[in-house]
Design a protein around this nucleic acid. Structure first.
Lengths: 119, 119
DNA sequence: GTTAAATGCAACCAGGAGGTTGCGTTATGT
DNA sequence: ACATAACGCAACCTCCTGGTTGCATTTAAC
């Protein structure tokens, strides 16, 4: 039984969030994601026009975003249209809200404890 | 003038968010971050006890989290205590809320347009 | 004072990431 | 029908990541 088995805090219960964060952890992918948030699907070529790199590099980034569930593609004739996909983002936001909430609760308990001590 | 200079959507105005997302884009770092959200600072050794890897590997991850502004360290005797740091997370949450809001606004405009068409 | 704990540093290694190039296929425009 | 646009695939290359090991230093415990 490895350490992580009796203490499941590490590497488990990740629920894919690290994949999603990793997908946004590259400036190019973050910018593509940001761009698609306006709701307009775009082709690879259209997205490549805005990027300072080849179409194939942009395609690689789109694949990472798609695997993470942040965008989805649809073939329209010879074009692949990529669109913003909100579900995974919503889950990640909820997770970060929960993490922040845990910290804030801990901070509150500390303040109550310190103030109780000073009564 | 490169393409990104006349169209600043890519690689600019990132404001460090990709660094932060990259920091959380590894299962080990995400777990460490999650662990520290309970508000209790911990030493490298304490965090290593929970990890299925060497202390030096954990130290590397803590350095990445610290560089991203997600944790902060304080030397206490021979120990480096690492604590949760909420500011950068708050900014990232605000950014993701804003991105989601943009998409929702676009969706709303589309629905209004479609419903207007059907009147 | 000695031993142990905790840490930092540097070198090493394998694999992956992030880009490019070349080429073939399919769909669209003329 | 032909030219062009858009795309997919694969191979390549450089650099970085994520881990380990070895060793030295500092601090704490006994």
């Amino acid at each position: 039984m490895s350490k992580t088995e009796h203490n499941p805090a590490y590497g488990k219960h990740d629920r894919g969030f690290s994949v999603m964060f990793a997908a946004l952890g590259d400036p190019t992918r973050l910018a593509i994601f940001d761009r698609l948030a306006d709701g307009k699907p775009r082709s690879i070529s259209a997205l490549s026009d805005d990027a300072d790199m080849t179409r194939q590099a942009v395609t690689k980034h789109l694949r990472v975003l798609e695997t993470a569930g942040l965008v989805q593609s649809q073939k329209v004739g010879r074009e692949s249209q990529y669109a913003f996909c909100p579900e995974q983002l919503a889950q990640a936001r909820a997770y970060l809200d929960q993490v922040a909430g845990r910290w804030e609760s801990a901070l509150m308990r500390l303040k109550t404890f310190v103030e109780g001590d000073q009564d």
